[in-house]
C-alpha cells in the first residue's frame, strides 16, 4: 500500500518535476534547428519586436498570421508541435479566458447583440459582436505572446538567454544572481525531496497531523539553515576566485550574416504587421 503524501510533500515533488521539465526544455534548446542556430541577442530583439507587433496590431487576421508564423518557426526548430500548442493553450481558458469573459457582454462592451441571454423590461444581457471581437483579440494576443515567449525560452539555453538579456542593459550582477538562483533551486529541492524520502523510510503508518506539521516546520528551518550555510560557502568560493563585488562576464556571441538577414526580415515583418 502506498502512503498518502501530504500537501507540502506533493508540492515539492511537483516543483521538482517542473524543474526536471525545464531540463527537458534545455534538451530542446540544444537541438539543431532554425532558432537554436541564431545569435541569442538577435533572437531576443526580434522576438521583442514580434511581441510588440502582436500587442499593437489592429487586425485579427494579422495576429492569426503571426501565430502561424510562430508555429512554423517552432516546427523548423524541431519543437514537438503538440507539446508546444498544448503548453500554451491548455491553461489559456483559466487565466486569460476568465479575464476576457466579461468583455463578451453588452454590460461592458455595448454594441450589436448576437446572442441574447436574458431579457426583462429593465435588464438586457447579451453577447455583442464588439464584445466577442474584444475578447477574441485579448485571448489571441495573450496566446500568441505566450507562444513567442515560450518559443524563445525553448530554443535558448537558460544561461545563454540570461547573457543575451545583457543587451537590454540588465546589470551583470542581476544576471549572475538569476543564474545562481536557478542552479541552487535544483540542489535545495533535491535536498528537500531526500529529507521527505528519509522520513518516509522510517515511518510506518499515518503520522498524527500535529506531529506532521511540527516535522514540516522543523524541516523547513533545517533547509533554511542549510541554504544560509551554503550561500556563505558559495560566497567564499567566489571570493577565492577573485570576485570583488562586481561580476565580470564574457559573451562569446558572434553575429553571422544569416543573423543580420533574420533580424532585417523579422523586424520588417513586425513593422508591416503594425502598419497594416
Amino acid at each position: 500500500m502506498r502512503a498518502r503524501r501530504g500537501f507540502i510533500e506533493r508540492s515539492i515533488a511537483d516543483i521538482t518535476a517542473t524543474l526536471e521539465k525545464a531540463i527537458f526544455s534545455e534538451e530542446l534548446a540544444r537541438k539543431e534547428g532554425l532558432l537554436q542556430n541564431l545569435d541569442p541577442r538577435m533572437k531576443v530583439i526580434t522576438f521583442l519586436a514580434l511581441l510588440l507587433a502582436v500587442s499593437l496590431s489592429q487586425g485579427l487576421l494579422i495576429i492569426v498570421a503571426l501565430y502561424f508564423l510562430t508555429l512554423l518557426l517552432a516546427w523548423r526548430s524541431r519543437i514537438p508541435l503538440g507539446f508546444f500548442i498544448k503548453r500554451v493553450w491548455l491553461f489559456m481558458p483559466f487565466f486569460t479566458g476568465m479575464v476576457a469573459l466579461p468583455a463578451l457582454f453588452n454590460i461592458f462592451t455595448p454594441g450589436e447583440p448576437i446572442v441574447t441571454l436574458w431579457q426583462t423590461e429593465r435588464f438586457h444581457l447579451a453577447i455583442t459582436i464588439q464584445g466577442l471581437r474584444t475578447a477574441t483579440f485579448l485571448v489571441l494576443r495573450v496566446g500568441v505572446s505566450v507562444s513567442l515567449a515560450l518559443l524563445s525560452v525553448l530554443t535558448t539555453p537558460w544561461a545563454t538567454l540570461l547573457k543575451a538579456l545583457h543587451i537590454l542593459r540588465l546589470p551583470q550582477v542581476f544576471i549572475l544572481i538569476l543564474g545562481m538562483a536557478y542552479r541552487y533551486a535544483f540542489l535545495l529541492l533535491h535536498t528537500a525531496n531526500s529529507m521527505f524520502l528519509a522520513r518516509q523510510s522510517r515511518t510506518v503508518g499515518q503520522m498524527p497531523g500535529g506531529e506532521n506539521r511540527r516535522w514540516i516546520a522543523a524541516s523547513a528551518s533545517t533547509l533554511l539553515a542549510k541554504s544560509y550555510h551554503l550561500s556563505q560557502e558559495v560566497y567564499l568560493a567566489m571570493l577565492s576566485r577573485g570576485f570583488r563585488g562586481e561580476a565580470q562576464m564574457l559573451d562569446t556571441f558572434r553575429l553571422k550574416p544569416s543573423d543580420w538577414l533574420w533580424g532585417a526580415t523579422l523586424l520588417a515583418l513586425a513593422l508591416l504587421a503594425v502598419l497594416m
Binding site: 539555453p157 545562481m180 542552479r183 540542489l187 551554503l230 568560493a237 577573485g242 570576485f243
Partner: peptide
Amino acid sequence: FQDPDVQLFSPTVWDEVAFAPLQL
C-alpha cells in the same frame, strides 16, 4: 572546496572555468 556544489555556481561548465580569469 571539499563539496563541489559549493564551488560550481555558474550555469554552465564553460562559464565556471571562465569565472576566475574574468574576475581577475
